[in-house]
Each structure stands twice: as structure tokens, then as C-alpha cells.
């Protein structure tokens, strides 16, 4: 799915209106409230260490692996809602569905990703813990040269 940032807004809204005509669910199902995303605190060694602990405590290693490369012990067994094999995101590359900014990561951790095995951690993480986890994941990006 490429980006269509260059599409004029009028065309973009027209495409959205057309897509909404393809399923009655757009009318019949209520729109959920977006999750609140609090302002990001500063990234510090403390927040990264806290995030590392959260990464382990939340069981992220099972799918994403201890090194964050998407090769956790259950990674090869995962399937999407259609039953097709699906790999967990490689967190060392910063190229992820839904965007690679801090807010995008925060949102993904808290909402999960419907259609995939990625669950929501909204009820398990406090906002500051979730931001700490974001900071830790950002250090896994080997391209940025962060120190571990």
C-alpha cells in the first residue's frame, strides 16, 4: 500500500466516500472513540530501561524476539484472521504498518492490530509505561545507531 500524500484533498475525500459505500458496516457500526495519547515524555536512559523491563514483562519476546527482530519462539506459528501465516514486525528496522513515529508506536501498542495476532495492551500498561516501551523499541532500530 503506497502513500497517496500527493492526492488533492477533494479527491481523497471522494475516495473515502466511495470506500464507505462498499460495506454497510460503515453505517451500522458505531465509531469507537480514538484512544487518548498523552504527550510523549523525554527519552532518557531511565525510560529506555523501564521500557526494556516492560518489553519482557508484557511477553513481547514471544513474537518479536529478545532482539526485536521478529523471530520470537512463536513467530512461525502465527496466522492472521484469514488463516494465512503472518510474521511479527521486525522492530529493528523502523518500517512498520501504521507509521514509525513515537505516537504511531504508542497507538499500535495500546490498540493492537485487528486482523493480526498483535493484541491490545491498553489495560495492562499505564501511559508512562507504554511510552517507556516506545522508547525502548526505538533503540532497537539498528539504522539509528542507538546504543543498547
Amino acid at each position: 500500500m503506497p502513500a497517496f500524500a500527493g492526492m488533492p484533498e477533494q479527491d481523497r475525500r471522494a475516495v473515502i466516500a466511495y470506500i464507505k459505500s462498499l460495506s454497510p458496516r460503515f453505517n451500522s457500526e458505531p465509531v469507537e472513540k480514538p484512544i487518548p495519547i498523552p504527550p510523549e515524555p523525554a527519552m532518557t536512559m531511565e525510560s529506555v530501561k523501564k521500557g526494556r523491563l516492560a518489553y519482557e514483562r508484557m511477553g513481547c519476546t514471544a513474537c518479536h524476539g529478545a532482539a526485536g527482530n521478529g523471530r520470537g519462539p512463536v513467530a512461525s506459528d502465527l496466522a492472521d484472521d484469514d488463516g494465512h501465516p503472518i510474521r511479527p514486525a521486525d522492530l529493528t528496522t523502523s518500517t512498520w504498518k501504521g507509521g514509525c513515529q513515537g505516537e504511531d508506536l504508542y497507538r499500535r501498542i495500546m490498540t493492537g492490530l485487528d486482523g493480526t495476532p498483535m493484541p491490545s495492551f491498553e489495560k495492562q500498561l499505564l501511559p508512562d509505561e507504554a511510552w517507556a516501551l516506545v522508547h525502548y523499541i526505538q533503540t532497537l532500530d539498528q539504522n539509528e545507531g542507538w546504543l543498547h
Partner: peptide, 19 residues
């Protein structure tokens, strides 16, 4: 850790991490 993943007609209704 478990994650409780509930689907209806093949579509995810709920997928939550259960620490």
C-alpha cells in the same frame, strides 16, 4: 502471558494481552 483473541466469522472482535 496469554492473549485472548476472539473472532466472529473470521473477523477479530477482541484481541487483548492478558499478563
Amino acid at each position: 502471558l496469554h492473549n485472548t483473541h476472539i473472532r466472529s466469522e473470521g473477523r477479530t472482535l477482541l484481541n487483548v494481552a492478558m499478563v
